[in-house]
Amino acid sequence: MSVVPLHSNNAFHQDPKFGRLLLLSLIVHVVVWAVFTGGWFGVSQRPKPPVYYVDLIHKPVLNPQAGRPEPRPASKPKPEPVKSAAVTPSAPKEPAKPVAKIPPKPPEVVVPKPTPKPEPKPAAKPVPKPAAEPDRRTEQKLQNALDEIRERQKHEAERDALKERLAKLSESVNAAATVPADVPVGMPDGQGNEVGVSALAFVQAFIQQNWVLSPYLLDQSRIANIEAKATLAYSASGKLVRFRINSPSGNQQFDDSLKRAITKSDQLPQGLPKDLELVVTFNLKDIAAARR
């Protein structure tokens, strides 16, 4: 009986490589996750509601950048078919176009200032600011009328301050490109220079509108430096998922008013481009400034 030596034991078994299987498993998980969250389940079946665009008044456009050409014309030379038909339809070699001015800087585009376009839209700031100070010489004027004027002026100042803030905010927000330019919301033939605000500014305005706080609730001396921060999480449908007042001001009245404002803001009137988590700082700087 001849004996044939067998090769060494180690190489005999060729067990499958566990690492590869781990990778496979991981891939499977990622795929499953993607399938579940990516909206293949049920979501796509929901029929999209018909969208009507009615341009009656200036309502904040949720995402005025929609339809806007890519902010980087240098990397992707794009023809601008939407813009001024009179201009040559495509001139990709021109690096800087003084006419069509598709600006690489978003702020210029989005700041709600009146564009020179001959559109029927009214100017964004129709504030007829009466700079008239309370006239000290007219003795006949009644105190009440004066109060009224002052009240109105205060409101005016507040509104102005608010508008300014909004503009600044949307500017900064867009500069940071928080709302990507390719979100499919906005005007159907948007050019990116409509009067409007970004989603963030829109949410800000909404919460602010719901925030009711009388300065008479507070110690007047505290108005300048009172502040609280709250974290709000909105789902894409505009629903307030969760909120927390992270750093309360310590003033009961102030914090209560915030809670009321947030409770009232539990459902945005429109959806958002995506889920949004916000850290909102509440303070009274504008009031304090108006007082001064």
């Binding site: 067990d15 499958p16 566990f18 299987l21 781990l22 496979l24 498993s25 991981l26 499977v28 998980h29």
Partner: peptide, 18 residues
């Protein structure tokens, strides 16, 4: 839990093969 799931699935594949 994700770690457990991933590893156990890897083991299931592995054992199935073996």
């Amino acid at each position: 839990l994700v770690y457990f799931s991933v590893v156990s699935w890897a083991i299931i594949f592995y054992k199935q093969l073996v």
